[in-house]
Design a protein around this nucleic acid. Structure first.
Lengths: 139, 139
DNA sequence: TGGTTAATTAACCAACATGGCAATTACCAG
DNA sequence: CTGGTAATTGCCATGTTGGTTAATTAACCA
């Protein structure tokens, strides 16, 4: 299970796309904790193995690290893993002028002399069915 | 398809957990665009309907908005939708002392007089199979 | 050695996500 | 009205996710 082989950013985003997992991370903010402790708030809603799996997803995304001590596994937050997400986010929240600028740029597109009602009627979709990968149905 | 009925933050994270969708958002950074234009860079790898579906995921996450103009749909980035993600991220990147502080807190736990080798042997798992929700399989 | 506790693994299942192709809708141009 | 172009919708196949229970591993305790 667990996200298999996608790019790291996708793996991280996917790991964060679950309220249980986010709650676990939030809890870990207040210090490392064992699996049992972490699971406690969720045992009314799901079993221990389910929590184990969530932890594994977080671990594969690099968001936590586990260490073994006697029969307990201590889980610890790995905050730097969030940098990847932060970088992407910052790029998309700041690297552009403003909503208005973009709207203007958009409205200005047809002003420079092409189609009357709509901008750039896309330069033909001739790349159409050229050589697509075809989704391997193995039937 | 498309993420159904989870909480908004999960929906947004899930929408971002796909490289195609992130690429679409990045492209939209440079201005609004029609579905056809947006699809162009991906047509070597997937069909138009597939792109349409990705756009729907982004739309349901509030990350883009679509408007109809003649037979073209213009897609526009909705940056404020990223605030939700940003807030969560900031909370988890800053609202805690530092890796070292947390490690110390962790190591200090058993110092204050309980079990010899390991901290807080969790106060019994007696909430075990009490009354779990049982995974609402709607049959 | 045997029992208990912590956590994981295994096998299974339902629901969902993502892709494909074909058909359809929606709009414009003659 | 017909044809063409843009995009969506419907249905289907497949893989992944998130949960279950039962069994297992690992470590401590007596």
């Amino acid at each position: 299970m667990a996200i298999t082989s996608r790019d790291p950013l996708s793996v991280t985003f996917a790991a964060l796309a679950d309220p249980t997992r986010r709650a676990i991370l939030s809890r870990l903010l207040r210090g490392a904790s064992t699996v049992g402790e972490l699971a406690l708030p969720f045992l009314h809603a799901m079993s221990l193995p389910a929590v184990t799996k969530h932890l594994k997803v977080l671990e594969r995304a690099g968001l936590i690290t586990k260490s073994k001590e006697a029969q307990w596994r201590s889980c610890q937050l790995n905050v730097p893993a969030l940098d990847l997400v932060n970088d992407w986010l910052e790029a998309h929240r700041t690297s552009f002028e403003s909503q208005f600028d973009r709207l203007e740029a958009y409205l200005a597109r047809d002003k420079k002399g092409a189609t009357p009602k709509f901008p750039k009627p896309p330069k033909s979709t001739k790349t159409k069915t050229s050589e697509r990968k075809r989704h391997a149905r193995k039937t």
